[in-house]
């Protein structure tokens, strides 16, 4: 079943077309990833889907409800973890969850249990009554995910959930996120510019400058690249290259002392090559195409693998300055 349907969605801010005629569906119970660089239109799309922004034109519906016209119904069906923390730092973890439970009208008899479950699920039971102000970035993000699940939403939106976290917290949080659809019967809609994260999604939309430039499973998308790349080092590359061309039909070239060629079925190709040039081989390695290669091929540029832009750092510095004064 399709839980999210987006058709010809457009959002302009003045002259800027932040979202430029995009269409896609999200399957219920799957992890759907929006992959693209900063400013590609990912957050704008999320804001339209979660009823915070009205689209300029086009249509978006979630769980059968129009995101623009039936805001209240859509809001009941979704949970959101925004890019910037939306916790109240002057309340404790438990109080933040309690606030959420009341806001979403969670039944009185259920409130305590769900909050307890949520806290244990994200491993924050010991810190439940500490002010959020004292939490690390990873703990805050986990608490936000827990909060987003309190009212049992159909779809959980995660906007760059691991942005700004250290590698270990990132890995922990990521493992936890990938388990959500199975454990909580929830569909995950996430944005990211980390390739490893996108790889774990069931389906990905690659977005750049407001347009979707590729849509499909990670395996599908990698086929755009044309398969695996095999690198071979031999004692005489020139001779080996001409020998390989005799047995395999592919473009064989040499770079940095290595022969390389691309093949749709690299694993079957290697034995054929070895049989031909056997003793002369010094090393063989094969590289599976990554989504980064896909992005590079489609846009001619790489997704910058940054944790925060300088502008974000300034924003954060100003905020923490204000908090202290």
């Amino acid at each position: 079943m399709k839980i999210i349907t987006v058709k010809n969605l457009v959002k302009t801010f003045g002259h800027i077309r932040a979202v430029d005629d995009i269409s896609f569906d999200v399957e219920e119970g799957s992890i759907f990833g929006f992959l693209g660089p900063n400013g590609a239109g990912k957050t704008t799309t999320i804001n339209i889907l979660c009823t915070l922004l009205a689209p300029t034109s086009g249509h978006a519906s979630l769980n059968g409800h129009d995101c623009n016209k039936e805001s209240a119904e859509v809001r009941k069906s979704i949970g959101i973890v925004f890019q910037d923390s939306s916790l109240d730092k002057d309340l404790t973890a438990r109080e933040n969850l309690l606030f959420h439970a009341y806001l979403y009208n969670v039944d009185k008899s259920e409130r305590k249990k769900r909050i307890g479950d949520a806290l244990s699920f994200v491993d924050l039971e010991d810190r439940a009554d500490d002010l959020v102000r004292k939490f690390s970035g990873g703990m805050k993000r986990r608490l936000e995910v827990a909060r987003g699940l309190i009212h049992r939403p159909k779809v959980l939106f995660l906007d760059e959930p691991t942005l700004g976290l250290d590698p270990q917290s990132r890995a922990n949080l990521w493992e936890f996120i990938t388990e959500l659809p199975r454990k909580h019967a929830v569909t995950i809609f996430m944005t990211t510019h980390y390739m490893e994260e996108a790889e774990a999604c069931d389906n990905i939309a690659v977005i750049d400058k407001g347009k979707i430039i590729a849509l499909g499973s990670p395996t599908d998308l990698k086929k755009i690249i044309g398969g695996d790349i095999i690198y071979i080092k031999t004692d005489d590359n020139k001779k080996a290259m001409s020998d390989i061309k005799k047995v395999i039909e592919a473009d064989v070239s040499e770079k940095d002392g290595e022969i390389y060629l691309s093949s749709l079925k690299g694993d079957l190709c290697i034995p054929v090559i070895i049989r031909e040039i056997g003793e002369r081989v010094i090393s063989v390695r094969m590289q599976r195409p990554t989504l980064n290669d896909v992005f590079l091929k489609l846009t001619g540029k790489e997704i910058r693998d940054e944790t925060a832009t300088p502008e974000d750092n300034i924003k954060e510095a100003v905020r923490s300055y204000r908090r202290r004064h």
Partner: peptide, 15 residues
Amino acid sequence: KEFGFMKEILVAPVS
């Protein structure tokens, strides 16, 4: 609004 908490309220199914 500045510290983001307003978003938590604005996306809730509350008038």
